[in-house]
């Protein structure tokens, strides 16, 4: 009971702070210095329509490399933590009740389309809302749908880790090309800028974001597979 009272008192204090913040808040009327630099310079510098993509892939490219590394570490730790719970083929319990006809047929129809949508989202990351992380998550949701349909289904871990490591290596290699032929590490300008708004434009940004998409998709899929393949010990 005292615990609950303490919690409520703590949250009430926090709520007072939040209300103070909220009551004095007025939205900016002009972009601040950093934001207006990005607004003015993204198009002439990088040729990317989507400013958020310009920031994530080029201006703050190193952060994104770190972020992808964090995701890789997460996927690796999830696999490491759960590896002991993975049952062998022969030791598995009774098969789960099969999924219905609707779900099976529907997932066969939908999974390729979801994959296609994911690829569309990360290939067009420099033009439309979306990008590598969003597209990768959509790709992984296709894997999730297949796992929901048949929880016993097994995907090739080797293939997934190949995709993941190749995409990661190419990402760093493109970053080094930027260091050699353009302004610095992960500078996307060593490829021509192309026609503003076309699919092949904005230097190496679509290439980098597609690699991020593949990497993120592979990492999310491997997390889902690790979670799905873990079973209770009997």
């Amino acid at each position: 009971m005292t615990n609950r009272l303490l919690t409520v008192a703590f949250l009430a204090g926090l709520a007072v702070i939040f209300i103070q913040l909220l009551s004095g808040y007025a939205p900016d009327t002009d972009l601040n210095l950093t934001a207006s630099y990005y607004a003015n310079q993204t198009a002439p510098d990088l040729g990317a329509q989507n400013i958020v993509t310009g920031i994530i892939v080029t201006y703050r490219g190193l952060d994104t490399l770190g972020e992808v590394t964090v995701l890789f570490l997460t996927a690796a730790i999830v696999a490491l933590v759960l590896v002991h719970g993975r049952a062998l083929e022969a030791e598995r319990g009774p098969k789960p009740f099969p999924a219905g006809e609707l779900l099976q047929t529907g997932s066969r129809l939908l999974a390729p389309m979801i994959l296609l949508l994911g690829i569309y989202v990360f290939v067009n990351g420099h033009l439309t809302p979306g990008g590598g992380f969003q597209g990768g998550a959509i790709v992984a949701s296709a894997v999730l749908l297949l796992l929901l349909t048949d929880p016993m289904r097994r995907f090739s871990h080797r293939l997934i880790s190949r995709i993941e490591s190749t995409a990661g290596l190419l990402f760093v290699a493109i970053g080094l090309l930027g260091l050699l032929f353009a302004g610095g590490f992960l500078d996307a300008r060593f490829l021509p800028q192309g026609w503003f708004g076309a699919l092949f434009s904005a230097g190496a940004i679509p290439l980098i974001y597609s690699l991020i998409g593949l990497k993120v998709g592979a990492e999310f899929s491997s997390m889902l597979l690790s979670l799905s393949e873990t079973e209770d010990e009997k």
Binding site: N32, A39, F220
Partner: peptide, 21 residues
Amino acid sequence: DPVPQALVLTAIVIGLGVTAL
């Protein structure tokens, strides 16, 4: 302002990683 959007994109992805862990 595009900067908070880029920040939140990062935060969502890291949040997902933390949830998975």
